[in-house]
Nucleic acid binder design. Structure first.
Lengths: 233, 233
DNA sequence: CCTACTTTGTGCGTACTTTCACAAGGGCGT
DNA sequence: ACGCCCTTGTGAAAGTACGCACAAAGTAGG
């Protein structure tokens, strides 16, 4: 097998790194818009809220795209990260559940930057079907299979009540969707070939509550940790 | 064994464990409602979507609340996890930004189960101020400091546009909020004593896109990996 | 060309997580 | 009361992730 390119990108970029690449990407895109041409790992790390060594190691997984003594070319890095994340092609998304959350998602302009196209909105409630939301007509959930097939949807977003989530998920998967983003508070069951990511408000709050309790439990240093902590720029 | 050491709960429960406790809790509450009295680590792990050894180790951090040969008492475990997460007391929450997302959050009934009380909704747009959302009157963002102080808000939720997020965050922190849940696509800067958790839709999608691309890259096994779902190499 | 300076890329020790595998403990039938 | 069988709780191993500290590699200036 002849290696097509000089990049060492083997098949294993650590999950932890993958999860941070979007953060770097967003920071870099902001810089690009402001006309910044070059950035050091130190500066980019500060903006992204991480350690600079970690940033460099993360980027090193994509290849050696920096110049020693100078830093990274902003535009080039934007391109490389985009490509690595698969954003140079468009992904087709469908959203199931057009309640408050579904609408919020549908209207979430541009879905990040670009790279994602919302192809359809589904709901089971006939009072909602036919409404126009974010420029799309809401379709009945029973047309899911047809639409997913014809539109080539690869990512399904579940914004339904918890009770319907697994059912909708099964239908997505059966129709050929291979990635699911789940906002319903349930653990979804899928075949191993399907990726699921979960966003769960109440879990996040509970984690915060845990730490909040810890702060209170420990002691109550009258006003400590406040003043000497502020200086962080 | 130790006669008088009811809980070994030292001050260090691993973060990874804390993040899973809410999942266990939800599963257990569901079982409690269905009248199930006892559950084994194996069964609970399956429902929660984790390995049973991991579940047992997680629970062991709270103390020895299981009975060998039998399993865990559902109600008792619900209580212990709730207490550990700090859900036996009420936390006061304020939401900034009453757009689509803010409304969705405000209407997200019960915020998990209970333990969280939404005390106020804020927005900068005077066309929204005064509206009633989820039983609360939307207040102007300039009253944030007063309300946070008088209501004793400890958790602030940021559902504003990205541009306003850091500003709102600073005001929350200045007013005494010590935990922040951020839905805006920016990295927030806070003093070390403040906890921040981030929920970012576009990051989740990008992570899915990465894996989606990987699947496509590798090859396209026509219908493989569906039923016979072994692990990947 | 050579020296001084800057910033990347990474080897390595440390800490955290996950998973295995099994001894210890407890209920239950006889 | 006894022993069988089940499930917990946990050492220890394996796998990941993090961050320091520094050599390598490039720029800039004389």
């Amino acid at each position: 097998m002849t290696p097509r390119s000089p990049r060492p990108r083997d098949r294993g970029i650590p999950e932890a790194t993958v999860a941070r690449l979007p953060v770097y990407l967003r920071a870099l895109q902001g810089m690009a818009e402001r006309g910044i041409l070059t950035v050091s790992s130190e500066d980019l790390a500060t903006i992204a809220g991480v350690n600079s060594a970690k940033l460099r190691k993360d980027l090193s997984h994509l290849g050696s795209y920096g110049t020693r003594g100078v830093g990274y070319d902003v535009d080039y890095l934007v391109y490389q990260i985009s490509r690595e994340l698969g954003l140079t092609q468009d992904w087709t998304v469908a959203i199931a559940g057009v309640g408050n959350l579904g609408r919020a998602l549908a209207n979430y302009g541009g879905f990040g930057t670009r790279g994602f196209r919302i192809a359809a909105l589904f709901d089971a409630d006939r009072r909602v079907v036919g409404d126009e939301v974010a420029g799309l007509v809401v379709r009945h959930i029973d047309t899911l299979e047809d639409v997913v097939g014809s539109e080539g949807v690869s990512i399904g977003v579940i914004a339904t009540p918890a009770a319907s989530a697994q059912g909708v998920c099964d239908r997505f998967v059966e129709a050929g969707v291979t990635s699911v983003l789940n906002f319903a508070p349930v653990v979804l069951n899928v075949p191993p070939a399907v990726d699921v990511r979960k966003v769960d408000l109440s879990i996040e709050l509970q984690i915060l509550a845990f730490h909040e309790q810890r702060k209170a439990d420990g002691q109550a240093p009258p006003e400590a940790g406040w003043i000497d902590a502020t200086e962080k720029t």
